[in-house]
Amino acid sequence: MGREDDAQWREKLTREEYKVLRQGGTEAPWTGEYVDEKRRGVYRCRACGSELFASDTKFDSRCGWPSFWTPLAGDKVKLLEDNTLGMRRTEVRCANCDSHLGHVFYGEGWDNPDDARFCINSISLTLEPAEDQA
């Protein structure tokens, strides 16, 4: 699915999914289903199904949300300046359907090529486990 109107999104998504994906909300830390997920596979956008992150880029940042050091490809997500809540952050959105996924933070000292932490809401994702992990 690509871009739907608001009524279609409300019909397709649960109230919690809609709040995060379409209204830019955030799930509470340590409550998401993928925080401690270890299975291999591909994480897709829960709204449209686009492939976003690979499990081999997921790492334990101890922040309460799933963290990845890079998306599958640069064109899978779009990054937007976010100055809400009195903070300067970079919002991560699905490039296909424009759903809110979370935020990316740089310069925290992570041992990955871009020193990046894509902090993504579990409710924004679905895991498609690798065939040997299902």
Results as ranks from 00 to 15, higher is better:
residue 30 W to F: 15
residue 30 W to N: 12
residue 30 W to L: 02
residue 73 A to Y: 03
residue 29 P to W: 01
residue 43 Y to H: 08
residue 49 G to P: 12
residue 60 D to E: 14
residue 28 A to K: 11
residue 28 A to C: 00
residue 63 C to Q: 00
residue 37 E to G: 10
residue 66 P to T: 02
residue 50 S to H: 02
residue 69 W to L: 05
residue 63 C to I: 03
residue 26 T to D: 08
residue 67 S to Q: 07
residue 51 E to F: 10
residue 51 E to L: 07
residue 50 S to L: 12
residue 78 K to F: 04
residue 16 E to M: 10
residue 15 R to T: 10
residue 38 K to R: 13
residue 68 F to Y: 13
residue 59 F to T: 07
residue 48 C to R: 02
residue 43 Y to N: 06
residue 17 E to F: 10
residue 14 T to M: 11
residue 76 K to W: 01
residue 25 G to Y: 08
residue 78 K to M: 10
residue 24 G to S: 13
residue 32 G to K: 02
residue 78 K to C: 02
residue 18 Y to G: 10
residue 19 K to Y: 14
residue 48 C to T: 05
residue 55 S to I: 13
residue 58 K to Y: 12
residue 28 A to R: 14
residue 52 L to H: 04
residue 73 A to C: 07
residue 50 S to Q: 15
residue 71 P to H: 06
residue 56 D to W: 15
residue 33 E to L: 06
residue 29 P to F: 06
residue 84 T to F: 14
residue 58 K to H: 09
residue 53 F to Q: 08
residue 62 R to A: 12
residue 32 G to Q: 03
residue 50 S to P: 03
residue 62 R to F: 04
residue 62 R to M: 02
residue 52 L to S: 04
residue 27 E to M: 05
residue 79 L to E: 11
residue 83 N to L: 15
residue 39 R to P: 05
residue 16 E to G: 09
residue 18 Y to T: 07
residue 68 F to R: 07
residue 47 A to C: 14
residue 14 T to C: 12
residue 61 S to D: 01
residue 61 S to R: 07
residue 74 G to T: 00
residue 32 G to A: 10
residue 76 K to V: 01
residue 27 E to V: 03
residue 63 C to N: 00
residue 74 G to C: 05
residue 52 L to K: 01
residue 17 E to H: 08
residue 40 R to S: 15
residue 57 T to I: 08
residue 14 T to I: 11
residue 77 V to F: 03
residue 29 P to M: 04
residue 15 R to V: 11
residue 30 W to I: 01
residue 60 D to I: 06
residue 45 C to H: 05
residue 80 L to W: 07
residue 67 S to R: 07
residue 62 R to D: 11
residue 15 R to K: 14
residue 47 A to D: 01
residue 56 D to I: 13
residue 74 G to W: 01
residue 74 G to L: 02
residue 51 E to T: 04
residue 19 K to R: 15
residue 15 R to H: 05
residue 62 R to N: 09
residue 16 E to S: 12
residue 41 G to T: 11
residue 67 S to Y: 08
residue 36 D to Q: 14
residue 81 E to Y: 00
residue 77 V to A: 04
residue 69 W to M: 04
residue 44 R to Y: 03
residue 54 A to G: 15
residue 41 G to D: 14
residue 67 S to G: 09
residue 61 S to G: 14
residue 38 K to H: 10
residue 80 L to A: 11
